[in-house]
Computed example of a mutant assay.
Amino acid sequence: MTGTGKRALITGINGFTGRYVAAELSAAGYRVYGLGSAPSDEADYFHVDLLDTVQLSDVVKTIKPDVAIHLAAIAFVGHGDAKAFYDVNIVGTRNLLQALYDSSHPMDAVLLASSANIYGNSTEGQLAETAPANPANDYAVSKLAMEYMAKIWLDKLPILITRPFNYTGVGQADNFLLPKIVKHFKEKSPTIELGNIDVWRDFTDVRALSKAYVELVKAQPRGEIVNICSGRTYSLRKVVELCEKITGHHLEIKVNPAFVRANEVKTLCGNPEKLRAIIPDWEVPALEETLRWMLENE
């Protein structure tokens, strides 16, 4: 399936991920419409609160999307307002599904972005989609609840769920770890304060993630849950070493106990086999390449 002449709706289009997914959809031939929580003068953009069911329903009926990629979420795990996680990530998602269903326009695919955070911190090794869920914070609980809520819509909408592991790239906010580290190298700071630097994470490049989302929407694996991950892990200590190698700048790491999370997952690595079975030629750049791209871009 190609996107030529089809309409794609992205919620959270002005977020970090949304801009990359929009570019990827446009390149695939889709006309891209966006929803967001902030006003903007951009074409085909609608300023909509997902909790406003009447407005949301009207906008979806106007757009008549063939595919939807739902990225809008409170995504920063350290976000202080627990209620916001549940309102946006569960109720907001349910409102969107209702609006898509009520629009009566036949859809090819509805991709919901969940999170690998739902696996929690008790399982070592490569996690496949069958690994037990064990969420350790409000963000992860809200995402898992969203997955269960979405299942009751499977007979009405062609839903697929993705569980992205950590991913990064140019434009990600500095309160995320890799952009924070990159920023310190760009500013040639002498030191950086981090939490536990010996946690190991599976990092994907946002450009590869966006490609995966668009290819999944084309493949339409209805009812499936798919990890988005590289299957490789790096420690934060290694990330700092790679940045030193690329820039030639040495940074002293100071471990700040305030940044050490009590319920931190030591190793979080995804198994990408299911994704590769659906998209055989999908590739993730080496982390060094992603970091170089981030370090060399303003």
Rank of each mutant, 00 (worst) to 15 (best):
A73P: 03
N175H: 15
D49L: 11
N166V: 04
L51D: 01
E289Y: 14
L157P: 02
V170K: 04
N95D: 03
S37L: 06
Y148L: 13
G12W: 02
R201G: 01
S142V: 02
T17E: 11
D87K: 11
N227T: 04
G231L: 11
L97A: 02
E124I: 10
L216Q: 00
T62F: 07
E264M: 10
V21E: 10
L9M: 03
L127D: 08
N263K: 12
I161V: 08
I161P: 02
P132G: 07
E289R: 15
L25I: 00
P158M: 06
K238W: 10
Q172K: 07
F203C: 05
P179F: 01
Q55Y: 06
A75D: 02
V217P: 02
L194P: 10
A8D: 10
G34W: 00
K61L: 07
R31D: 13
P179R: 02
A145L: 02
A84H: 14
A22I: 08
K218N: 13
A38C: 06
N121M: 09
K188E: 14
I246T: 02
I152E: 14
E129F: 06
R232M: 11
L216T: 00
I197C: 08
C269I: 06
S115R: 01
I159C: 03
S26K: 14
V77I: 12
A131S: 12
A131R: 01
E288L: 04
A133N: 13
L160T: 12
I279E: 12
N134Q: 14
S103Y: 15
K151G: 15
I225T: 13
N14R: 14
Y167S: 12
A145I: 02
L100W: 15
G5S: 00
K6F: 00
K156S: 11
P106L: 01
Y20E: 08
T4S: 10
Y20R: 09
V182N: 05
S37V: 04
P106F: 05
G171R: 03
F85D: 00
E244T: 15
S142C: 02
A150E: 08
I253M: 10
I63T: 00
E147L: 01
P272F: 08
R276Y: 11
L51H: 05
V206N: 14
N95W: 00
K238Y: 12
L291P: 04
V141D: 03
I225N: 09
F76S: 10
K61Y: 07
V141C: 08
L160Q: 13
T130K: 09
G169Q: 07
A68H: 00
D44F: 09
L51V: 06
I10Y: 07
A262N: 13
G169A: 06
V265W: 08
T123S: 14
E273Q: 15
T123K: 09
Y234F: 14
P257W: 03
L295Q: 07
E241I: 07
D66M: 01
L268K: 08
Y139K: 00
L287H: 05
P135G: 03
Y167L: 12
M294G: 04
V141N: 03
C229W: 13
C269Y: 06
I246N: 05
D281Y: 12
P221M: 03
L56H: 04
L112C: 07
